[in-house]
């Protein structure tokens, strides 16, 4: 159940939207510098869980979160924690690529300048981030051009680069490949694997084959008593081989969910 040196410890998490309980009694540990895949059928709160990890749930007016999420020693959910610091340390990439309606370069430097970095530093980091995602050679001649003109796969890599430029400790990915064609999807997938050495990665995916290919660690989400929760977690290989729960077994073998 436990893993070595977890970077995030979630304990008794409960998330409600108004009357509706989205997540209940969720306890989970996420190991450092590994890829943790969150899998499970739609609507069982995987994306909601991801959103709580960098407090994006604050954007939703009726959303209430209780329990605790420890990022190293900081409780993300406490009122005292510096929200902007948390969001720098925990980066996020969404299912749909969301380039800002600005130039490619500005897309990367805007968050950096927001976090108080000097101009010279900004450009260096932006360039490095573009190299990290393998976009540099493709866009170095048109950094001032609108990011909207990039292809879907390029946009998604730009968004990853934008998150990487902030040098986060944890990178959250919410089905980053599901809106991409197979080739672009493979490029992004390889990119994610290459990032494992540098940071902790949490990825939500519906694609079990993908989870199998890239994940070291896995958590299976399921609906229990009308709310989403984690029914099983552990090293990915072991889980795929020998899940304890019957539903998990069926889900992983593709017969339900």
């Amino acid at each position: 159940m436990t893993c070595d040196s977890p970077i995030i410890r979630v304990n008794q998490l409960e998330v409600t939207y108004g009357e509706q309980v989205a997540l209940r009694d969720l306890t989970l540990e996420i190991p450092q510098r590994q890829i943790t895949a969150l899998v499970g059928p739609s609507g069982c709160g995987k994306s909601t869980f991801l959103n709580t990890l960098n407090r994006l749930t604050d954007l939703l007016p009726d959303c209430k979160v209780s329990g605790s999420i420890q990022l190293n020693d900081v409780d993300i959910l406490s009122a005292e924690c510096d929200l902007y610091e948390i969001r720098r340390r925990v980066g996020m990439v969404f299912q749909k690529a969301v380039p800002f309606p600005l130039s490619i370069e500005k897309n990367l430097t805007l968050p950096l300048s927001e976090h108080g970095l000097p101009r010279s530093e900004q450009q260096k980091l932006a360039q490095q981030a573009l190299k990290d995602v393998g976009l540099w050679d493709e866009v170095k001649d048109r950094l001032k051009k609108p990011a909207m003109n990039l292809s879907g796969g390029q946009q998604q890599r730009l968004c990853i680069a934008r998150a990487l430029a902030l040098n986060p400790e944890v990178l959250l990915l919410d089905e980053p490949c599901s809106a991409l064609d197979p080739i672009a999807s493979r490029v992004v997938e390889n990119l994610i694997v290459s990032l494992r050495k540098r940071m902790t990665i949490v990825i939500v995916t519906h694609n079990l084959a993908q989870a199998k290919r890239i994940a070291n660690h896995m958590a299976i989400f399921w609906i229990r008593n009308g709310a989403g929760t984690v029914i099983e977690q552990g090293p990915a290989a072991a889980l795929f081989l020998n899940p304890r729960e019957a539903v998990a077994q069926e889900y992983l073998s593709g017969t339900c969910g």
Partner: peptide, 17 residues
């Protein structure tokens, strides 16, 4: 689009910015 606000927030940008 709302995802621009969400993406900006996720990057730790202030509402003002």
């Amino acid at each position: 689009p709302g995802d621009i606000r969400q993406a900006g927030t996720a990057l730790g940008m202030s509402q003002t910015r």
